[in-house]
Simulated assay, not measured.
Amino acid sequence: MNEVYADDRVETRHPEQNIAKADAIAAWCNAIRSRPRLGKNPDEYLAIGIDGKGRLMELVAIRNGDGDFLIYHAFIPPQPNAKKELGIIEGSGRK
């Protein structure tokens, strides 16, 4: 229960980013913000976390009935729409 796994596509979808499954799992375990995507699929979660190499990463995972998570999307850096969905605001807002 509450195990975290990464799908093979984490490593193959964006090969130029050099994201290994272990990197995505580390970022998930070190998430600074996460939430279920209630408007889309309540079993789908969006997170932003820091991997073992210090990289800020956007992640999407599905939670199964046992409470385990399967990460199927990982991207560096987190995109503005993911930050907005998680309520993360960059900068001070001053002009």
Results as ranks from 00 to 15, higher is better:
residue 95 K to E: 09
residue 76 I to Y: 06
residue 38 L to D: 10
residue 69 F to W: 08
residue 83 K to A: 09
residue 84 K to C: 01
residue 2 N to F: 13
residue 18 N to F: 09
residue 15 P to G: 04
residue 94 R to A: 10
residue 22 A to W: 01
residue 83 K to P: 00
residue 11 E to F: 06
residue 49 G to V: 06
residue 55 R to S: 06
residue 93 G to T: 00
residue 68 D to T: 13
residue 38 L to F: 06
residue 1 M to I: 13
residue 95 K to V: 10
residue 13 R to G: 01
residue 1 M to R: 12
residue 67 G to C: 11
residue 35 R to P: 01
residue 17 Q to W: 08
residue 34 S to L: 06
residue 17 Q to I: 13
residue 11 E to N: 06
residue 27 A to I: 07
residue 30 N to Y: 07
residue 32 I to F: 00
residue 80 P to C: 12
residue 73 H to A: 04
residue 42 P to T: 11
residue 7 D to W: 00
residue 74 A to S: 04
residue 40 K to M: 12
residue 46 L to A: 11
residue 33 R to M: 03
residue 5 Y to V: 12
residue 86 L to A: 02
residue 45 Y to C: 07
residue 50 I to K: 13
residue 72 Y to D: 11
residue 59 L to W: 01
residue 14 H to S: 01
residue 91 G to F: 02
residue 66 D to Q: 14
residue 54 G to T: 11
residue 3 E to F: 06
residue 30 N to V: 09
residue 54 G to A: 12
residue 30 N to R: 11
residue 24 A to H: 03
residue 90 E to R: 11
residue 1 M to L: 11
residue 48 I to H: 05
residue 51 D to M: 05
residue 38 L to R: 13
residue 47 A to L: 03
residue 79 Q to V: 08
residue 62 I to L: 05
residue 1 M to N: 12
residue 51 D to Y: 04
residue 12 T to F: 02
residue 68 D to S: 15
residue 60 V to W: 01
residue 72 Y to H: 14
residue 10 V to R: 03
residue 18 N to G: 10
residue 82 A to C: 05
residue 79 Q to A: 12
residue 15 P to V: 06
residue 10 V to C: 04
residue 50 I to V: 15
residue 32 I to G: 02
residue 20 A to F: 09
residue 31 A to P: 00
residue 33 R to A: 10
residue 49 G to F: 04
residue 41 N to V: 05
residue 32 I to T: 05
residue 65 G to V: 12
residue 72 Y to T: 14
residue 60 V to A: 14
residue 22 A to E: 14
residue 37 R to W: 03
residue 52 G to Q: 13
residue 27 A to F: 04
residue 8 D to F: 10
residue 84 K to M: 06
residue 14 H to A: 03
residue 38 L to T: 14
residue 32 I to Q: 02
residue 79 Q to E: 10
residue 11 E to D: 07
residue 37 R to I: 09
residue 29 C to M: 12
residue 26 A to H: 03
residue 55 R to W: 09
residue 53 K to C: 06
residue 48 I to L: 05
